[in-house]
């Protein structure tokens, strides 16, 4: 996705690498530092594939490079954005795998694992609630946070269902 994020920023106007880094960090709510090296690796790959062009400040090819989007870069970006995300949210679920492994191993203390997992989800929910309060001025990031909260609520309900059904099985 970093590739498309960079193309998206360049679709707006040409930038040099540092601007791309800070622009992206800002768009993500200023909560995450993006690795510089990762940005430059991606940029040079995009340049190699003809999706962006880089122009050096000095004629000898030194100094800051300013990148701009090429027509095929724009086409690539649009094609990516027009596609619905096909991959379902992974039924992830590391915790589910652990439940299965417990079963394989013949452990019968799933209720303890469920209780610990609930604790972890509740703690995350609390932190996201606080994040939701602190990110209200950034509409995009706050949408992401609200989405994560809804998923956590579903995860917590699902744990309750696991508990009930596994209990019924063991009776």
């Amino acid at each position: 996705m970093l590739r498309y994020a960079l193309l998206g920023l360049l679709a707006h106007q040409p930038h040099h690498g540092y601007e791309l880094k800070t622009g992206l960090e800002q768009a993500l709510g200023g909560n995450w530092e993006i690795n510089f090296g990762q940005i430059y690796t991606t940029l040079s790959r995009l340049e190699r594939d003809g999706l962006v062009t880089g122009t050096a400040e000095a004629e000898d090819g030194r100094g800051k490079r300013t990148y701009s989007l090429t027509p095929s870069g724009k086409a690539d970006l649009d094609a990516s954005l027009e596609q619905a995300v096909e991959k379902p949210r992974p039924l992830h679920d590391e915790f589910f795998i652990k439940l299965v492994i417990r079963h394989l191993a013949g452990y019968d203390d799933a209720h303890l694992a469920l209780a610990r997992q609930r604790q972890a989800y509740l703690q995350q929910l609390r932190e996201l609630n606080l994040a939701s309060a602190s990110q209200q001025e950034d509409p995009l990031v706050s949408l992401l946070v609200e989405g994560a909260i809804l998923h956590l609520q579903a995860d917590l309900q699902w744990l309750g269902m696991c508990e009930e059904r596994l209990e019924a099985l063991s009776k």
Partner: peptide, 10 residues
């Protein structure tokens, strides 16, 4: 610690 939660998300 809202920072951690957001960091994990992003």
């Amino acid at each position: 610690d809202t920072h951690r939660a957001l960091g994990q998300l992003l």
